[in-house]
Write a protein that binds this DNA or RNA. Structure first.
Ligand SMILES: [Mn+2]
Ligand SMILES: [Mn+2]
Ligand SMILES: [Zn+2]
Ligand SMILES: [Zn+2]
Lengths: 135, 135
DNA sequence: TTATAAAGGAAAAAAATTATCCTTAACGAA
DNA sequence: TTCGTTAAGGATAATTTTTTTCCTTTATAA
């Protein structure tokens, strides 16, 4: 369990209870949509406004405390920022799972051929997870 | 210039003038957002409804004549379906460009480690394109 | 041709996101 | 601790995006 008060301040954001609550849920869930996050955070802060949630997500995205993950046929998900990593997305249970594979070779291939100034590699594999294959 | 009447029928969709118009623009543009597509298609079909455009995009996505590309900090883009390929996304000019790199090694790595049943590899590199680096 | 089922268009409705405006709370400086 | 400033919260409205409805028009096959 991380100290979100400090992390927020390190990212030049005030450490409000609502923000700490949002981050705690996100740490626990890993990857979450606005919709799910709102229904979760309302349990702790029944009066929280959806506008507050959106404003906070934007603020934390801007200050690089969060990142967003966009996948085909799925709502945007958010996660607490960490090193650039790939994801597995199950089309059946609609869960996102982290995948730690090495990008370097891939990135080098891009750089040498295209002259592109690379900032981020966005990689998500869509398919069916093991659990859902059994069903 | 492709024959979209036939392509539509092959995908079990009626070959309407509006759909052919949409596909012609998409062939020309490569990757396009709903917003841009709507402003373009209205030049050819001034009375076309935005609802018609959405309905057609969904129908063509469902019947695998189109695919959608989702990128961070960018609106969803659409393209005419082809082999699964990667993209470069320029954060400055916001253009998407096709990138033909080989996925096989990457895909194999996923399959052997995770037991995941892979359907599609979603790969987009974000950064600054050569043209925009000069500016 | 003609029948029929799908698609188009206008409008309304719903869903998602953002803006406004006043109140409340965080936090640094006394 | 208290205080003053400023950012953030909350309610609400507004805006934007997407979907639905319902009637008319059109594509297609018989
Ligand atoms: Mn992740
Ligand atoms: Mn492409
Ligand atoms: Zn699954
Ligand atoms: Zn560019």
């Amino acid at each position: 369990m991380m100290n979100y008060e400090n992390i927020l301040r390190e990212h030049n954001l005030k450490a409000t209870n609502q923000r700490v609550g949002i981050l705690s849920i996100m740490e626990q869930k890993g990857h979450i949509s606005i919709e799910d996050l709102y229904s979760k955070i309302k349990l702790d802060f029944p009066s929280i406004s959806l506008a507050t949630l959106y404003k906070n997500m934007h603020a934390m995205l801007k200050n690089e405390l969060l990142t967003e993950i966009k996948v085909e046929n799925s709502k945007t998900h958010f996660e607490i920022a960490s090193n650039n990593h790939a994801h597995l997305y199950c089309e059946k249970c609609r869960e996102l799972v982290d995948l730690d594979i090495e990008f370097k070779k891939l990135n080098n291939e891009i750089l040498k051929d295209s002259g592109f100034l690379l900032n981020k590699t966005n990689l998500t594999f869509s398919g069916i997870c093991i659990a859902c294959q059994g069903v």
